[in-house]
């Protein structure tokens, strides 16, 4: 990206809004002029005038770089304002920032994607890339866990991927009503070595930190090497370019070295309590 956008948000227009869930919406934005193409896993800083600025992952297909898509769950002031946005609203944007999912590492190998909750959003660009070229990989398995059936993000998209012959997609919920006949249980329960070769599979995971900890422990127990597990970390951010230290995570600045890390890079930090 050009230096002009590093610290100063550029005003852009909300082109469309899709209400995904009761607290979650997907906004399509015009990218900042001169903005670089983004890679799966990267994020932008979205600025709501008078309220503040937050990091949000790019959740669209990188091949369609004409639009920047972000899926936002309203949890506080800024994110809720973004979920309430309507087409024509103007917001500030800068980015793309951060590291990307190392998709190259997965070529020729089985791929396992494990997502939970809004954690599916940062993984969606990666899944689009896998779907565009499935023959370049071994078996592809996407596992997704949500709280209830009403909280399943990108339901129709998941359904479409599920129907594709080259994709294994399984969805589970932590609790479901009487009429739910799908899987019920945590996303870890869906992990089965029948789907992949533990000796070579490459894993990409994003979700609540505690979920990722359980997922990773289970995978290590099945013989998956830590160097083939990649995760996306969330830390509060300010500058997003490695100046302010706001996002520091042990020796790492999540905004620059992350958000995507290899498990081996952060293994010792994952078990630590956040201060």
């Amino acid at each position: 990206m050009s230096n002009g956008h590093v610290l100063t948000p550029v005003a852009t227009e909300v082109l469309s809004v899709r209400h995904e869930l009761r607290d979650t919406a997907t906004l399509s934005l015009l990218p900042p002029p001169g903005g670089a193409p983004f890679a799966p896993g990267q994020f932008s800083m979205l600025y709501v005038m008078g309220l503040g600025e937050i990091p949000i992952s790019l959740s669209g297909d990188p091949a369609e770089s004409g639009l920047w898509i972000h899926t936002i769950r309203g949890v506080g002031n800024v994110s809720q304002a973004l979920v309430r946005a309507i087409p024509g609203d103007r917001i500030g944007v800068r980015g793309p920032f951060g590291s990307a999912w190392p998709l190259d590492r997965a070529r020729g190998r089985d791929v396992l994607v494990v997502a939970g909750g809004i954690g599916l959003a940062p993984l969606r660009p990666l899944i689009y890339r896998l779907a565009a070229e499935p023959e370049a990989y071994g078996r592809i398995t996407v596992l997704y866990g949500a709280r209830t059936p009403e909280d399943i993000l990108y339901f129709h998209q998941l359904q479409a991927w599920k129907e594709s012959a080259r994709f294994h997609v399984r969805v589970t919920v932590d609790s479901g009503a009487d009429d739910w006949s799908g899987n019920l249980g945590p996303v870890t329960h869906l992990i089965s070595p029948v789907d992949f070769d533990p000796a070579s599979v490459v894993v990409f995971t994003c979700g609540p930190e505690i979920m990722m900890r359980f997922v990773i422990r289970l995978l290590l127990g099945l013989g998956v090497a830590g160097e083939r597990i990649f995760l996306s970390m969330e830390r509060n951010m300010k500058c997003a370019v490695g100046f302010c230290g706001h996002c520091q995570y042990g020796p790492h600045f999540v905004c620059k070295e992350g958000p995507v890390f290899g498990y081996d890079q952060v293994a010792h930090l994952l078990a630590e309590k956040e201060r």
């Binding site: 909750g117 609540p208 969330e234």
Partner: peptide, 21 residues
Amino acid sequence: VARVHDARLQVLDVYHSPQGG
């Protein structure tokens, strides 16, 4: 043991909090 771990993770309700991923 695997089922107990599953049940504990379910009880934690990890997607509920604002930090829900």
